[in-house]
Design a protein around this nucleic acid. Sequence first.
RNA 1: GCGUCGGUACUCAAGUGGUCAACGAGGGGAGACUGUAAAUCUCCUGACUUCGGUCUUCGAAAGUUCGAAUCUUUCCCGGCGCACCA
Length: 394
Amino acid sequence: MTNEEKIEEILTRGVAEVIPTDKLRAKLLEGKPLRIKFGVDPTSPSLHLGRATAIWKLRAFQDLGHTIVFIIGDFTGVIGDTSDKESERPMLTRETVEQNLSTYFEQAGKILDMSKVEKHRNTEWLEKLTYRQITEQADVFSLADFISRENIKKRLDEGKRVSLRELLYPLMQGYDSVEVNADVEIGGTDQKFNMLAGRKLQEHFKKEAQSILMLDLIEGLDGRKMSSSWGNTINLTDTANDMFGKVMSLRDELIVKYFKYATRVPVQKVSDAQTALERGENPRDVKLDLAEEIVSMYHGSDVAVQARESFLSTFQKKEIPDDIEEIKGEGKLGELLKSKEIVSSMTDWRRLVGEGAVKRLEKGGVEEKITDDTVLATPGVYKIGKRRFVKIVE
RNA sequence: GCGUCGGUACUCAAGUGGUCAACGAGGGGAGACUGUAAAUCUCCUGACUUCGGUCUUCGAAAGUUCGAAUCUUUCCCGGCGCACCA
């Protein structure tokens, strides 16, 4: 791929919008190293596939020799983010922030060369601002802009609480851009307002306004936007088997989008997958390829192949997986499983038994349904539902 | 500060003296089916149970009542309006 092609891909693949449209392309073609700003949230350390799309985008910039600048939002983290729910609580301690960061960097390190990444904590400068400076910055914006933002307006209309502090967030994020002299900021479409605020503040401080590159957000397991608070994420720390299975559980309609956004396969291959589906090929098979591709990005291709095999044998051929949790104990099976938190309560256990979800697996693939919820635990392999396996040992 | 509306299970959201462990939706679980942990359909989703029941829940506490998520009082929290202030 030539540099022009790479640049074209940077500007289009998975990208929702670029502001201003042509200026960034021109700058990139010019080849001068740019400073690419990216905000890191230290409150949720685990990276998911949705967030990873942004990191891969950074990687593409890095490959072209640009400087990646991580802004660690420790100020907002320590202060406590009010942006969702009544979460005045978070108030992370210094230690938690540091701990989260190291796990975050470890994961990002799978994608980026972290040694070349410039890192800043925004307490460095935000903590030092005086009321005078803050009010000066606040004067750059008008209230109407802030409260007409979609998510704020919606909440106001619904009679939900919106704290005044929340309105200060775009200022903080925007000021970060001023401090680090960002040429480009990368974020999801949900960050548009904040990133635009960066442009405005940079202009106010007589600097060149950054370009902003907004990425489309991808859907999670349940079809809603992938987000830690929904619990519908595929995490980079997921085991290979888990990650594989999660990808397989995606809706068929998302296959192409995932190929495009969540993998780095050539654009040609993306459209191949699309035509395959349109031709009427079994979506399952295309999805198997997708899952293998994604798993190999984070666990390596050997492991990905294994994960594929394991998936096929467990769920298609209905074999027993090799890595089953083993538990020791005696007494009633239900009580034992409850004590190990495999079932949540005795009521839950009885319900499962009543539904015919509990089976004891005999040799030769024979399954014996358990119908008595008071059976004693005897050594052997048990299956609860389709996914839960337990092995009782002496 | 005054007035007013509200706080219901994982989330959203009905219920406004007994038929309420509490409608519905989402999420979660199970079964059937299959192309997969997809889609679709059905069921379940507070806990304990000797399956007869029992116990604990509707912001908190106290009260009225044979009986309260539902009524009263106080308190805590939130929205909105007004006032006050700048």
